[in-house]
């Protein structure tokens, strides 16, 4: 890890005043220190926001809930109100990484963590996402890479919490000293590599992510998230599904079905959502929805449906099952899958 000046801030205004001269924000530092140890990020100045107590906490209101950017994933996953009203979020935050990482990792840092593609994480590979010409994954080791909507870079969306927050139609509050606050929906937070390979999110260098706002779910909403990894703990998802069902008895008025590790940017599965809308949830329909998700119309590229790489065709079989089981889990018709991450 390179040497750096650490600017420790205890107020939002103080931190905003320091976002200059190539400074990099540090929350818990789990993602940032990893990249610095790898030598792929070498900032000379870190703005430490970890001690800003005003950015920590879970605040329910009649409109929904606001979560401070520095709230840890454990604080979120253990919160009783979130567990009952926003199960998809507590499921997702509770299955990230390991228990100890969740005790440290902040919600803001989880949303803004950089790609996990091993070429990207290595100092030895100067790829497209580092402003160079090539992607090493297409002809290299790509078992954990994308199967949908990837275009030039098949690295997958790394943030587990983003899957839940997209399903819940949440927004982030971005704050800068000059321009004040702006709200950005999770669906607009991430930049697809084909649009700009070196810009991962719309966050500007002088902005802090200060809070996440989640609207109040409609009456009768039930939700769930399940993550499948190589191990039960420790790893990022190889397949995952977030499901939010607005129910009227056993009839689903409206569904949100979200996949994280299928594509470079976290995405809905509109074909699967359309299959559930207006119908009772049954095993058949849940299975059909899982399959439909793999037909996925392109959202960001011209790529129709799942198109696996040389080593990840297994994912095309995993996602439909993850989606099917998570729909039934959300609907209360099936228990939590013992083979999913816990």
């Amino acid at each position: 890890m390179n040497q750096f000046v650490l600017v420790d801030c205890t107020t939002v205004d103080g931190a905003l005043s320091q976002l200059k001269d190539g400074s990099v924000v540090k929350a818990a530092g789990v993602d940032l220190l990893d990249r610095m140890k790898n030598g792929t990020t070498t900032p000379s100045r870190l703005v430490n926001i970890r001690n800003i107590s005003a950015l920590r906490g879970i605040h329910p209101s009649p409109e929904g809930v606001t979560i401070g950017a520095l709230t840890t994933l454990t604080e979120i996953s253990e919160h009783p109100l979130l567990q009952s009203h926003y199960t998809i979020l507590t499921d997702a935050c509770g299955t990230v990484a390991t228990p100890h990482i969740r005790n440290m990792a902040t919600l803001g840092g989880n949303l803004l963590q950089e790609l996990q593609c091993w070429y990207f994480r290595s100092e030895e590979y100067e790829c497209l996402r580092k402003g160079k010409e090539i992607c090493f994954a297409f002809s290299g080791l790509n078992q954990y890479h994308a199967i949908m909507d990837y275009g030039t870079c098949p690295s997958v969306a790394p943030s587990t919490s983003a899957v839940a927050l997209l399903g819940l139609n949440a927004s982030v509050e971005l704050t800068s000293a000059k321009r004040g606050k702006r709200m950005v929906a999770i669906k607009d937070l991430y930049v697809h590599p084909d649009a700009n390979p070196t810009k991962f999110t719309v966050l500007e260098p002088d902005e802090l992510l200060t809070a996440v706002m989640i609207p109040q779910p409609a009456k009768g909403t039930r939700s769930a998230y399940q993550k499948y990894g190589e191990k039960q703990s420790n790893d990022w998802a190889i397949a995952d599904a977030g499901v939010v069902l607005e129910m009227d008895g056993n009839v689903c008025r409206k569904a949100a079905i979200v996949m994280g590790s299928a594509s470079p940017v976290v995405r809905h599965a509109p074909e699967a959502e359309a299959m559930l809308a207006g119908k009772p949830i049954t095993e058949e329909i849940a299975r059909a929805a899982g399959k439909a998700a793999m037909q996925g119309a392109p959202l960001q590229t011209a790529m129709q449906g799942a198109q696996p790489l040389s080593m990840n065709a297994y994912k095309v079989q995993m996602f439909p099952i993850a989606i099917y089981r998570t729909i039934l889990l959300a609907a209360g018709q099936m228990g939590r899958d013992p083979s999913a991450a816990s």
Binding site: Q3, F4, V5, L6, V7, D8, C9, T10, T11, D13, G14, A15, S17, Q18, S44
Partner: peptide, 12 residues
């Protein structure tokens, strides 16, 4: 010179 709540350390 730093505003309140801002302290700078290092790199040494």
């Amino acid at each position: 010179e730093h505003p309140e709540g801002v302290r700078e350390f290092g790199p040494g």
